[in-house]
Computed example of a mutant assay.
Amino acid sequence: MVRSRTGLGVIAQDGGWDAVAHRSAVRGDADRVLVAGSRMCFDVTEDADGVRADNIRPLTRLCFSPAERPQDGELV
């Protein structure tokens, strides 16, 4: 995530387009969630303006569907 004074940044998706992110789309404390190099999960919205990240939150086991969810002791 690249931060700027405007609250806008870019999140790189695994195997997809980069998504524009705004500080207001972060769930929780944005300064703790938006740490450079950290992994996070988010919803992707695509509209006429491009790809946008919504509902940004830290990556946890709950970010995965039950079939894909890591087991206890596996790294996320």
Rank of each mutant, 00 (worst) to 15 (best):
A48E: 10
H22G: 11
M1G: 15
N55S: 13
D18K: 12
A67N: 06
L75M: 01
V20K: 07
D47V: 10
M40I: 12
I56T: 08
V44T: 13
N55V: 06
L34N: 08
A30E: 15
G9S: 13
S24K: 04
A25I: 01
D54W: 03
C41W: 08
D72F: 10
R61I: 01
L34E: 00
G9T: 13
W17C: 06
A67P: 00
F64Q: 01
A21M: 13
V10D: 13
M1H: 07
A67H: 04
D72Q: 10
R32Y: 05
C41S: 11
L75S: 13
D72V: 14
R32Q: 12
S65R: 11
I56V: 10
E46V: 15
Q13C: 03
Q13R: 08
D29E: 13
P58A: 06
L34K: 10
G37A: 13
D54M: 09
L62M: 04
P70M: 01
R61H: 01
G15F: 03
R61N: 02
R61T: 04
L75F: 04
Q71T: 10
G16V: 00
C63L: 04
L59A: 12
R3W: 09
L59G: 09
T6S: 14
R57Y: 08
G50V: 10
R23W: 11
S24D: 11
R3T: 14
V51K: 03
E68W: 08
A30G: 07
R52Y: 14
T60L: 02
H22P: 13
P58K: 01
P70L: 00
V33P: 06
A53R: 09
V35H: 13
A21E: 12
D49Y: 12
A53T: 11
R52V: 15
V51A: 02
G16I: 04
H22L: 07
L34S: 06
S65D: 05
I11G: 09
F64N: 11
V10R: 06
G9C: 03
A25N: 12
R3E: 10
P70W: 01
G73K: 01
V10I: 15
R32D: 11
D47T: 05
G37K: 06
A67C: 04
V44K: 14
Q71Y: 00
E46M: 09
G73M: 01
L34M: 15
D49N: 07
H22E: 02
V76H: 06
S38V: 00
A25H: 06
I11H: 05
R61L: 03
L34P: 07
D18F: 02
D14V: 14
R69D: 02
D29Q: 07
T60R: 10
A36M: 05
N55A: 15
Q71K: 03
R39T: 07
A19S: 15
V76I: 09
V2F: 07
Q13Y: 09
P70A: 04
F42V: 01
F42G: 01
L62W: 13
C63D: 07
I11D: 02
L34W: 12
G28L: 06
A30S: 12
G16N: 00
V20C: 10
V26D: 02
R61E: 03
V10F: 09
A36Y: 04
Q13L: 09
R39H: 14
D14K: 03
